[in-house]
């Protein structure tokens, strides 16, 4: 019980201090809107194409929202030493880090539903397989958050975290099958695609929105879960190695 009080206190503090700030809320709304508008204009195929744009816009919104926020949150607290206060708290280290990343997961998930809610007013979304769509979004948010954590722990300055994140984020957008089908990528790029967590998330969303997924759901969910576990474990190992000297 005591551990969970600490967990919710950290989560609530992070939400208040970092995520529920006007710039972040406006980012969460404007970013998906701009991407939707951009692809809508680019495709020129009318309102009916909006569901086709959803997987890409949702994935990008989650990826940028979670990794950017976590880079700021973790790196800033490490730099001003307030993270030491958390390390001194008598709660399991794993629970502490789940609390620190919980806010980003919620923020990423909320970001994902902004384009969905907007789309719901414009087109019929009754065809979406929600049972795959919602868990898919949550798992994408988790894997992106843990990727952000992994990056944040590897650097010491906020700007380094943002720069380092871009090395992962931009290639991921173009290699994960959101905008170019993986089948049409050159052979030498395909292994990179399957080494990215977002590839499996994008496949779930494509399947849930318009029924076309390249891999079985079980494999997609299993791969995303594995990415979450590996990235979280690697980040924890790195924190213990680098920050508990």
């Amino acid at each position: 019980m005591k551990d969970w009080r600490a967990y919710f206190a950290i989560l609530a503090k992070d939400m208040k201090t970092y995520y529920l700030k006007p710039p972040n809320i406006s980012w969460g709304i404007i970013f998906p809107l701009v991407w939707t508008g951009m692809f809508f204009i680019r495709s020129g195929s009318g309102l009916g194409s909006i569901p086709n744009l959803l997987p890409g816009v949702i994935s990008v919104a989650i990826l940028f929202g979670t990794t950017s926020m976590l880079a700021v949150n973790i790196t800033f607290e490490k730099k001003n030493r307030s993270f030491e206060r958390l390390l001194l708290a008598p709660i399991p280290f794993e629970l502490l880090m789940l609390a620190k990343t919980g806010g980003a997961i919620l923020f990423g998930t909320a970001n994902a539903f902004v384009p969905v809610i907007i789309a719901a007013f414009i087109v019929d979304l009754s065809g979406i397989a929600w049972a795959a769509f919602v868990p898919g979004i949550i798992l994408i948010a988790m894997s992106s958050t843990f990727l952000g954590l992994f990056i944040a722990v590897a650097v010491s300055e906020v700007f380094e975290a943002q720069t380092f994140s871009n090395f992962f984020r931009f290639p991921m957008i173009f290699l994960c099958g959101l905008f170019f089908p993986i089948a049409k990528l050159p052979v030498f790029l395909k292994p990179f695609s399957y080494a990215l967590p977002l590839t499996y998330g994008a496949d779930i969303l494509h399947g849930a929105v318009h029924g076309e997924h390249a891999l079985p759901y079980l494999l997609d969910f299993g791969a995303l879960t594995a990415f979450c576990l590996v990235l979280f474990a690697a980040s924890l190992w790195n924190i213990k190695r680098k920050w508990i000297l």
Partner: peptide, 10 residues
């Protein structure tokens, strides 16, 4: 209050 919560205080 936050620091107290880290130690599980109600």
């Amino acid at each position: 209050c936050f620091c107290a919560a880290l130690y599980g205080m109600p």
